[in-house]
Design a protein around this nucleic acid. Structure first.
Lengths: 336, 336
DNA sequence: TTGAAAGCGCTAACAT
DNA sequence: ATGTTAGCGCTTTCAA
């Protein structure tokens, strides 16, 4: 391994000078700087980032904590963070939290051990107190996909209520009057907000949504299928179905066809997230685009900025709005 | 920040003793050990991993380099690595190579700066010489999804030829005689091997595969659609379609239905990879399961093992075999 | 403009 | 069983 000492020796200068050259310090003579640079290149010297971190307490390392990377949504999130990290010349440490408070905490701790001052956290299950405490300790902590008023300027989140309203309004404008909703059994966070948006829109339009027309299940394809089967078994009549997310929507489409109902002719279905799967099903899914990757890049830059405590943080929050993506799973309400 | 010194002072011992307690050294008195442990807990002390890395030259850090995390396949790969890393108590550094030799090299270099001796590399575009050189320099480097005889024991890969043969044989056994293939324009690596497998099977069965029945396109849904349209436009007749991967297969299904052909009644379609999308399309896609996540975990353990140069490496390679997953996109060949 | 030297937090000989 | 001490590779005063 080539160290700064080796470079210094070969270049015939002190290690301090080498260090200065590396850091573009302008207090080095031209000739000297050129010589050192040449030696660095020749020897293929690369500074040891651990040593650097140890003394300077700054690592140019950024951490992400997401529940599970194998889920496309989180893969996109990670990809956005990676992009932001690369653009700012930061390294990326990654940890799965596996949907548990305990492992989430471990993941965060391990990132802190590595001195990364900028952390992007996607937390669904930790309580506000824990998060607040963490935020206090880590200036460069940014929450993605969660809003807490006390640290509003460190939250990068999506307006789920507005998104759900937009989806619902779209269906209403297409003439639908009979709605059903399939949502997640876990009503904390996103599912709750999306349901709220649906309710608001329906109410504004003077439309009913019977409790029986709301079916809860797991937030995946199987859950979507089961929820629709349950709806059908209960004899609920609907021409428009709002799903908590794309996965449930796709499961729903499968179940609908299996029951002899056509999408969108008999039932219109709308999803949420705009994952790649939404272009894989047939009909292609109309859905709300969740700009995760963009949000993640944004959050990364924000986290890096905030980790520099010498800069006064802005006080605004960072709210993104989902966009409707029209594909083929929604049609006008069928005539009676 | 709590350091080892603080702990030592509070516990009334030397830092060496604290260090020993941390490392479960058995040369510490019971009483003393208990006291130190208590102080560590009280103070919330966590060893600084940079300092540790600096002196011990071992970081318990593992790096992965994949082209692009937002693609589900690589998300799964990363997830598998993460699992392996967590189980071995390793931290995970991640870098996208963006499908380019240059950024791939940068990604690797940045991992090395961080002293991570174990690296999982998914490389499609670097040439063998570069890789070989790298392998020589980094004992803990493992190649995933690529085979190089010279470092066979450090390759974790999939038998693409066998997989493609299995898929083809399955179709043959279902009575199909008229085949078409859609593959990637880039024929290096996987696509080439899969095509080879298809050719071998067909030949063995005494079946023809006209060059015109092989269409190249980009390896995604759009590519799949275009390829099938091209096939149809050329007037190629086929009852069985082998796609390079799931994405192309799904695009193909869309194009087939758009052309008034039913899957699987008129045309059977088979994919490769078994991504989540393969369960999203309708009919659900019959495909070859690529155990990426499992392979990635395996590769991780292997990399960690190899990075310990005191252990004599085994000489065998690490070959995985894809499994057929029967879903609904394949049927018996239609009668004439 | 350049160098000498202190020390970041930790591990691992070497002493005791 | 426990303490002392010498660095790991680097940044950063302080001096020259």
């Amino acid at each position: 391994m080539v160290t700064i000492k080796d470079v210094a020796k070969v270049a015939g200068v002190s290690i301090a000078t080498v260090s200065r050259v590396i850091h573009d310090g302008h207090q080095v003579g031209e000739a000297c700087r050129a010589r050192v640079k040449k030696v660095i290149a020749e020897l293929g010297y690369r500074p040891n980032s651990n040593a650097r971190a140890l003394v300077s307490k700054t690592t140019n390392t950024l951490g992400v904590v997401t529940p599970k990377l194998s889920m496309p949504f989180f893969g996109s999130l990670a990809s956005g963070v990676e992009k932001g990290a690369r653009e700012n010349n930061y390294k990326l440490l990654m940890s799965n939290s596996l949907y548990e408070t305990k492992s989430e905490q471990e993941a965060i701790d391990s990132l802190r051990d590595h001195n990364c001052q900028a952390i992007i956290l996607h937390s669904e299950y930790s309580d506000e107190k824990t998060l607040l405490k963490l935020a206090k300790e880590i200036p460069g902590l940014v929450l993605i996909n969660r809003y807490m008023p006390a640290i509003a300027n460190r939250c990068v989140w999506l307006d789920n209520v507005a998104g759900a309203r937009q989806a619902t309004d779209y269906l209403i404008n297409r003439g639908h009057k009979n709605f059903a909703v399939i949502t997640s059994i876990y009503q904390n966070g996103d599912p709750g907000f999306r349901l709220q948006g649906i309710r608001e829109s329906l109410k504004t339009a003077g439309l009913q949504l019977a409790e029986a027309a709301i079916e809860e299940s797991t937030a995946n394809m199987e859950g979507g299928e089961q929820a629709v089967q349950a709806l059908l078994n209960k004899g609920i009549k609907f021409t428009a179905l709002l799903a908590y997310n794309d996965l449930m929507a796709i499961g729903a489409i499968h179940a609908l066809f299996a029951a002899g109902l056509r999408v969108p002719e008999d039932v219109s279905v709308i999803g949420f997230d705009d994952l790649i799967v939404s272009r894989a099903c047939r009909p292609r899914l109309t859905t709300m685009h969740y700009p995760v990757e963009e949000m993640a890049s944004y959050a990364t830059k924000l986290a890096i900025q905030l980790s520099d405590t010498s800069i006064e943080p802005e006080s605004r929050t960072h709210l993104f709005i989902p966009q409707l993506v029209e594909r083929d799973s929604v049609a006008d309400a069928p005539h009676r």
